[in-house]
Simulated assay, not measured.
Amino acid sequence: MTTPPHSTRTTNLEGAARAAVAGGVPLALLIGLGLPQYAAFAVFAGFTAIFGATEPYRQRAVTTGVAGVMQVVCMAAGIGVALLGAPLWLQAVGLVVVIVGAVATLTALRTIPAQPIFPVFAFVVSALVPVRPADLPLVATIILGSVVWAWLVAMSGAVIRRVLHPHAPHRFRPLADRKRRSLAVLRTPAFRETVALNVVGALVAGGVAEALPGLGHPYWAVIAVVSTLPALRQRHTVSRAVQRVVGTVGGTVIAVGILLLEPSAWWIVVIAVVGQFGAEVFVARNYAVCLLFLTPLALAVSWLSVPEAPALLALDRISQTLLGAVVSLALLVVGRRVERRRGRALGATSSIRTV
């Protein structure tokens, strides 16, 4: 009897379902308890489940656990900055520490996603959410509970496979080989150069965004940089930056159209779940389409935590994303020229096409 071929669609849907459940359940619980102002913490904790999605489960347990701790530390650092009044210099110092730590952790783990977008996102937004000292026990419970839930969701496939895989093996995606990990990579010039590109790009983009009159949310320029620059082991092209801008503009238009309807908190939960599911389905296929789902999720959760005029959110989102993309492209092009002069690859820039 011929075994039916494995469906690549199953791979996407399996990981997407886990990501949606990991973030959606804590978010729904917060809405049910009347605590929408803490929605961002539940969503950032839920991102834990997306790390190491293709790894064997024993290795995934470590990857997801480390990623969860990383998300907790980044949110805690952001909350600490917020409690100290969020001075700009402290945000900058915290951002540098988070980038260095996140790039080192993700590079050593060799995980996917490899870029520090989620830890940086967790830090910069947590630094802006108004939290009082009296709220800390509740916030800590939300964050830790959501991370533990995300870890359990990420590992749930092990149980499902044990029960169902013998009966329908073709329905399950083949897991990747176990990755060989070593801290030696953290001592290489390529690693240091990758860290430097991210730090310089984030500080430049954040500084310019902060100085521009009439615009807010400078952290979106930082997010655009760290999500556009390639990780150490990744191939990368200019097209990713273009896709970032196109997807963000399209996703922002969708988000503004939704927010102008003044949806209830429960509709935000639906948007977040659909957004996370769709983003995971398309992230490996087309980054622009992925952002058509991810951008409404980010803006809706941001609006739920700190309500703002949708039109202003749209202007800031598009402008700051364009700024971040320009900064990252400039860094990559300059890095490519440095490579040609010295005759060897520079960190993460060696795969960029400059034409």
Rank of each mutant, 00 (worst) to 15 (best):
M1P: 10
T8I: 15
R9L: 15
E14I: 14
A16W: 03
A20V: 12
A22K: 02
G23W: 06
G34D: 09
A39G: 15
V43G: 02
A45F: 03
T48V: 13
E55W: 02
A61S: 11
T63R: 05
G65Y: 09
V73L: 13
I79L: 03
V81L: 00
L90E: 03
V93F: 03
G94F: 01
L95N: 02
L95I: 05
V100K: 05
P119A: 11
P119D: 08
F123H: 00
V125G: 01
V125W: 03
S126M: 07
P137V: 05
I142Y: 02
I142C: 06
S146C: 09
A150N: 05
A154C: 09
P169K: 09
R173L: 13
R187H: 13
R187K: 12
A190G: 13
F191N: 05
V199E: 06
A202E: 05
V204T: 14
Y219F: 15
A221S: 14
I223K: 01
I223Y: 08
R235D: 09
V238Q: 05
S239I: 15
V253E: 04
V256G: 07
V274S: 06
V274G: 04
F277V: 09
C290H: 13
T295D: 06
L304G: 02
P307T: 14
L313M: 15
R317W: 09
Q320I: 06
L323K: 05
L323H: 05
L329Q: 04
V333T: 13
V334I: 15
R336G: 00
G347Q: 00
A348W: 04
T354V: 14
